[in-house]
């Protein structure tokens, strides 16, 4: 009986989590390059202007790029767990590690008007997200081209751009907006693992060293084993 109750409770929770995380579209490939410092920095500046009001980056305390963009600990918002009706805006330091750059890149561009949703906008990547659309001014307003009920059947077969159209133009063109979001995702990708730049630089030296070591050891091993092989063939000749 206890097992049954547990199953019902856990099963219920799982369905609930699935419901809030439902995605209808195939994610786009984010053309990010975290080695391009200029775009990462631009992304950090956009992040500070657009996201830092609600979202913290609490693990980015001393890195050069965040400091240069003005993302500093004292500006980061701190929410208690009951803020925003129990859904406080999450910290975004690890969002790309958790989701993937492609997911974030697609999510940020696929808001559409939905009068039935509490924030006035819904999202194709995260259905019923609690996050308000922060880009109405620069992207414009998008509307859904298919009935809401059809989305359930589309699941992952189409891209967001095939399902949404721009109703009112924002301050940026489509291309400018894509670049804007991509810079931001680039910064988030960098923030998820700032070691990656240093890592890849050191990596080639370490692996180069190991390859040389391997060759030297292999030559040494073959020369040692030459004795054994010679003796072996001498004894089998007899």
């Amino acid at each position: 009986m206890k097992g049954l109750i547990l199953t019902v409770i856990l099963g219920g929770t799982v369905t609930y989590v699935n419901a809030i995380e439902q995605s209808f579209v195939k994610p786009d490939k984010a053309p990010i390059d975290i080695k391009d410092r200029a775009t990462v920095l631009r992304g950090a500046v956009h992040f500070k202007a657009q996201c830092l009001t609600c979202h913290s980056m609490k693990y980015m305390r001393f890195d050069e790029i965040s400091q240069e963009a003005g993302i500093v600990p004292k500006l980061m918002p701190v929410w208690d767990e009951f803020a925003w009706g129990g859904n406080p805006p999450p910290d975004l330091s690890l969002v790309v590690k958790r989701r993937s750059a492609d997911w974030v890149y697609t999510f940020l561009r696929s808001f559409y008007l939905d009068a039935g949703h509490s924030t006035g906008f819904n999202n194709l990547v995260w259905h019923n997200t609690k996050m308000p659309n922060p880009f109405v001014g620069i992207q414009g307003q998008q509307v859904l081209m298919v009935p809401l009920s059809d989305l359930q059947h589309i699941r992952g077969e189409k891209r967001w751009s095939e399902l949404l159209e721009l109703e009112t133009q924002g301050a940026m063109t489509g291309e400018q907006f894509d670049d804007y979001v991509n810079d931001m995702v680039n910064y988030l990708a960098y923030a998820s693992d700032p070691s990656s730049l240093e890592r890849e630089k050191i990596g080639s030296w370490v692996i180069g060293y190991m390859v040389v070591l391997f060759i030297v050891l292999l030559a040494l091993s073959l020369s040692y084993w030459d004795d054994i092989k010679r003796k072996h063939y001498q004894s089998s000749d007899k």
Binding site: E200, G203, V206, I207, M210, L220, S221
Partner: peptide, 20 residues
């Protein structure tokens, strides 16, 4: 010496994953 060769080969793969 044979095991050291294997260790070096293993570490090449290991560090490729660690760093990349």
């Amino acid at each position: 010496i044979k095991d050291l060769v294997a260790a070096a080969a293993f570490l090449i793969i290991f560090f490729t994953i660690v760093f990349y």
